[in-house]
Design a protein around this nucleic acid. Structure first.
Lengths: 110, 110
DNA sequence: TTGTCATATGATTAATTGTTCATATGTTCA
DNA sequence: TGAACATATGAACAATTAATCATATGACAA
């Protein structure tokens, strides 16, 4: 017969966040899981930037950048302000930096 | 004429990590960007677990779990040890916990 | 060795997703 | 109001990927 781990499972299950929260967590990391978006976040690490500057920097089309900024904004990872025709984006909070920094440590330490 | 930001770009470009590193960083977060893998990592947060216990816990097939554990292991996010027929998996290091914790904060704080 | 349990793996399929292209919206200035 | 610039958006296509199914590998016990 298969081996039993009902006792362990009961304990662990009690400590697990809800499925909804775990889903949200996965969705959040999914946003970090794209090179273009990572590059955008790095570009905004120190300063705000306008869309066309980001596009120039990454050597990509304005449209592609704009689509990705929309994704980042929907996840509350960036914020924006308008100044005339130009729209400047910046990181929304410190979590973005912490998450990236932790990931950076993980891949550079080994 | 389009507006100019050559000076800004030059500065930012100098501070950006290499494309290869940014790619690796994206690849790392991609792994966190799946609910099943997030659940597995949460399951292993406190204790090691065997594959079938994880499958039971998440109510998924052994095969699906095994495939995902392979992905996690390839990224050095989990490690394993064999005890007879059973193979136990555990988190590889503290970065996994930190990354998850940062993400958790981001989504629960607003 | 044979049977059973635990895990791994390869191929396939369905679903997700990032970029492109064309175009729309919004702002400024002459 | 019209022209130019900055940005946003919708549809379509290509590429990636997670789960499934069938099967293989590995360990143990009788």
């Amino acid at each position: 017969m298969p081996h039993d781990h009902a006792a362990l499972l009961k304990h662990i299950k009690a400590d697990m966040p809800t499925d909804e929260l775990l889903q949200d967590l996965g969705d959040l990391f999914k946003i970090f899981g794209d090179t273009t978006r990572i590059k955008i976040m790095y570009a905004l690490y120190e300063n705000e930037m306008c869309v066309c500057a980001i596009a120039d920097l990454l050597n990509m089309t304005q449209s592609a950048i704009s689509h990705q900024l929309k994704v980042l904004k929907a996840a509350n990872l960036v914020e924006s302000r308008r100044d005339g025709k130009t729209i400047y984006y910046r990181l929304a909070d410190e979590h973005v930096k912490s998450i990236i920094a932790q990931g950076y440590e993980h891949i550079t330490e080994k």
